[in-house]
């Protein structure tokens, strides 16, 4: 009795498994057959488009001497408004859960560990804009368990795929620059003027500066660069004739936390 029941359960179990696996295989093969595209005719194709700006490694040089409070506000406003970055207002807003793509800070916060004693008052307190460094060796990409954040091999931009992010925030722990923000709540109610050309995010995903990949694709420079009155220079770091390389050849520039080996693509002239 005991034995036959056990045998029955075993057989039943294997049958269910077999039927399940079989139907799954059939479903899968049907799926791949369809996804290969309708037969005949030219396959649909993707391309970069004619207007796209391309580079081997996009980079930015920030001339901190040209920065002031109102200019920084203008750049932040330009970036945050086109990217639908929420700006929570009111008393119940949690300022510690805010989202920032680009923001001004002071020298000692932008460059901790590189503090210079007896720094000129003007340098110590001038606003310095910080943003994602689009590191050549990004620790956030290494940490992400789903490749939701990744470095585009084409042009070195470190991107976020909001569709894939599971919100584990490992990338935020890994980023040594505090450049990443998490959507602690639905951002939409806090977006005043939604830009319909750019998606918003949903709660529970991480976001950050994308070097305006969507603008580069249509031949426009990043919004902050356009708003910067010449304080920010943008270009291809691998091209010796680019504006950024020319500037770097003329001026002494530093990067944030160079000792960590992440090789930021954003440079600062102090």
């Amino acid at each position: 009795m005991e034995n036959s029941r056990r045998r029955f359960l075993k057989n039943a179990g294997f049958s269910v498994l077999g039927v399940g696996a079989g139907s799954m295989l059939i479903g899968l093969s049907a799926h791949t057959a369809k996804a290969a595209g309708p037969d005949g005719g030219q396959r649909p194709q993707f391309s970069m488009g004619d207007k796209a700006m391309e580079a081997e490694r996009w980079g930015m040089v920030v001339d901190t001497r040209k920065l002031n409070d109102s200019l920084c506000r203008k750049m932040q406003e330009a970036c945050h408004s086109i990217h639908n970055v929420p700006e929570p207002v009111g008393e119940s807003a949690r300022r510690d859960q805010i989202i920032k793509w680009i923001w001004p800070t002071e020298f000692k916060h932008a460059f901790p560990g590189q503090e210079v004693e007896f720094l000129a008052e003007d340098v110590a307190h001038r606003p310095i804009v910080v943003l994602c460094n689009h590191c050549d060796n990004p620790p956030c990409v290494q940490a992400c368990p789903t490749k939701a954040t990744f470095k585009r091999e084409r042009d070195g931009i470190v991107m976020m795929d909001f569709h894939r992010c599971i919100g584990c925030r490992f990338c935020m722990a890994a980023c040594p620059f505090g450049s990443r923000s998490f959507n602690f709540r639905d951002p939409r109610p806090d977006i005043e003027d939604e830009n319909p050309d750019f998606p918003t995010r949903m709660r529970g995903v991480v976001e950050k500066c994308n070097f305006c990949a969507e603008r580069l694709a249509v031949g426009k420079k990043p919004a902050c660069v356009e708003a910067s009155d010449g304080a920010l220079t943008f270009g291809d770091l691998n091209d010796p004739d680019s504006d950024v390389r020319k500037l770097l050849a003329e001026q002494y520039a530093i990067r944030r936390k160079p000792n960590l080996g992440t090789f930021p693509s954003v440079f600062y002239i102090v």
Binding site: P145, I166, C168
Partner: peptide, 24 residues
């Protein structure tokens, strides 16, 4: 781990897109 995720419904992305360089 699950209660800490911002998008727990996408948990299986860890398996769909296996990433051996991530400690998670």
């Amino acid at each position: 781990i699950i209660v800490d995720l911002g998008q727990p419904m996408r948990l299986l992305n860890v398996i769909f897109y296996p990433t051996p360089n991530s400690m998670l």
